[in-house]
Design a binder for these strands. Structure first.
Lengths: 340, 340
DNA sequence: CAGTGAACAGAAAGGGCTTTCATTCTCTAA
DNA sequence: TTAGAGAATGAAAGCCCTTTCTGTTCACTG
């Protein structure tokens, strides 16, 4: 492995000058610099990031903290979409991304410890369970963080406007003429789930819609299966809703299957609306009407906020809330005019 | 930041002993070790991975090299599924994962350079274009690598048996009674695409099926759109195929759309088979009959092979080829008995 | 011609950890 | 009692790089 000492020896300059040449110090003559750079090239020199980090305390590494309970991991479409766009900004600024795990070197520890050990310059956080004590520990630390899909005053946060998104969805359904609209909630233990349900409830007030306890059913973990079960319940109601707003696309797909299985049609008998606009929403039949989150923007804005902090801008904590958009496809229609 | 020197000072032992205590050297008395560990805990000591790497030349980091042309990045379902399972093995063995980009610190360089700079212990490679000169450079280096979805004698490789998978697909179609089977190829410039097409052609021979130039159409980039276009072409053929084997699920979905748009049905008029079994294959209608790759196994086997190499097992190069499986759903049926 | 400042270069001290080798201490056996 | 064997500990060098501070040279200025 070639080091700056080897280059120093070969060129006759000191290691100091070699280092300076690489770091564009002004007190190195251009000719000297070129000489050193050329020799370095010839000798196949590659700088050692660890040695550099050791002295500069800067690792040019961002940690990705991503924990969710269902085991899909990276495959999670929302996560991967956001991270992809985050990554582009990061790479452009010279940072690389590293996954942070809870245990380091086989030993049970915590995120914070792993972050410190690895010396990351910042962390981007995706968590389904924000009550995780290890996460709290990280939050209380001085490591720059940006948290996705959550709100707290302890860190920068970036999320889309879940409540308003739900409201938009409801507005669309109302505009089609629906009055009996049910909600398949993602559950109150995830932040977006809570917010979307809140949006749903706001909508009930706002347009003075029928409010029934039984119109809110919870589908755990945003899975297709739980969406199916939730819809089954809704279908058995004496006063069946004419439309259903599901807190996630998979929930909506499950709901659609349940409707079909019970011999009814979507959107003929029941309209179903999703949330997220995952890839497959356009491919299913009927294509899913849903609320899209701007994942690309979420990722890039998060990156910008984080790098601003890392570079010491004193803007104070940012709580970005990004707008959503209703994507109209084929799973919603005006309610059937039934005997009344 | 607490260092071993701080602990040394506080406990009265030397830094050497402190270091040894952490690394379970046998020449540290148990009492001493416990004393040191407790003090470390109290002082909030966290080891510095960079310092350690600097001396040991081991970073406990695996680089992920993933480059593809279409811009989906991490969202790529095959990639993310494999990496997720790879990651689990890696974390269990104490390694963390880091994305390797082509340019390091804003400067254009190469994967190899970035790997060396970051001092990764190994690399797992996903590339759509294996002729990339930067990749060749890495391949020729001495950094342990495992390459997914590719075969070469210069590195470990892990891929599923694309050719056999295609053969299985064809076998299934033949078993349904099809004789005029077309192929929507992913193109010859990706390794899996080539192999699958090879399997298709083998099948033609094996079952003595109708062989027509025009039965092979290429859908670039495995996109839905190109699948659609490819199918359009096939539909215009004077002697229309009764079944189509597509090299990827999105191609197949596009094909199905084209069939529907032309007023025909799947599988009534034409059977369509995919490859990959992406998540959405089960959700579309008709649910897609396809060939599944065992992504979990691909990832974990790749990890094992790589860690074996890193830990110096001298097993020689491995070229793992994993079996595939036909997943029967609703997009294939026996050919319609047309006027003959 | 002394004095000044710019331009260029290098010595040396770290940064936090590991590892080799030497040293000290404590027993045991003769 | 003492040589010798372990057991326990530590000194010091090294990993590769950055940065501060000092030193030298040289071209000018007044």
């Amino acid at each position: 492995m070639t080091t700056i000492y080897d280059i120093a020896k070969k060129t006759g300059y000191s290691p100091t000058t070699v280092s300076k040449a690489f770091n564009n110090y002004s007190d190195v003559r251009e000719k000297t610099r070129l000489d050193i750079l050329r020799t370095a090239q010839e000798m196949g020199y590659v700088p050692n990031a660890h040695a550099r980090t050791l002295t500069t305390k800067k690792s040019w590494t961002i940690g990705i903290l991503f924990v969710e309970s269902t085991g899909v991991g990276i495959r999670h479409p929302f996560f991967s979409a956001v991270i992809e766009s985050f990554k582009q900004v990061a790479v452009a600024k010279g940072y690389d991304l590293m996954f942070i795990s809870k245990d380091v070197g086989g030993k049970q520890s915590g995120y914070l410890e792993n972050c410190r050990t690895r010396g990351v310059d910042g962390v981007v956080v995706f968590l389904s369970d924000y009550t995780d004590p290890y996460f709290q520990e990280l939050l209380n630390s001085d490591i720059p963080t940006v948290i996705m899909d959550f709100e707290t005053t302890q860190s920068h946060t970036v999320c889309s406007d879940n409540s308003a998104g739900a409201l938009q969805a409801m507005e669309y359904l109302v505009s089609l003429g629906h009055r009996r609209i049910a909600h398949i909630s993602g559950g109150m233990n995830t932040f977006p789930g809570r917010r979307r349900q809140l949006g749903y409830e706001k909508a009930l007030d706002q347009w003075d819609l029928e409010r029934q306890e039984s119109y809110i059913v919870t589908g755990e973990f945003y899975t297709l299966e739980s969406g199916y079960e939730a819809m089954k319940q809704l279908l058995e109601l004496p006063e069946r809703p004419t439309a259903v707003f599901a807190s996630g696309d998979l929930l909506a797909l499950g709901a659609i299957m349940a409707v079909k299985d019970s011999g009814l049609t979507v959107p003929g008998d029941i309209s179903v609306m999703g949330y997220d606009d995952v890839d497959l929403a356009r491919y299913v039949s009927p294509a899913l009407t849903t609320v899209r989150q701007d994942t690309a923007l979420l990722g890039s804005r998060a990156a910008e906020v984080l790098f601003d902090t890392i570079n010491g801008s004193e803007k104070g904590l940012e709580a970005l809330v990004l707008p959503t958009q209703v994507i109209v496809r084929d799973s919603c229609a005006p309610p059937a005019v039934t005997g009344r």
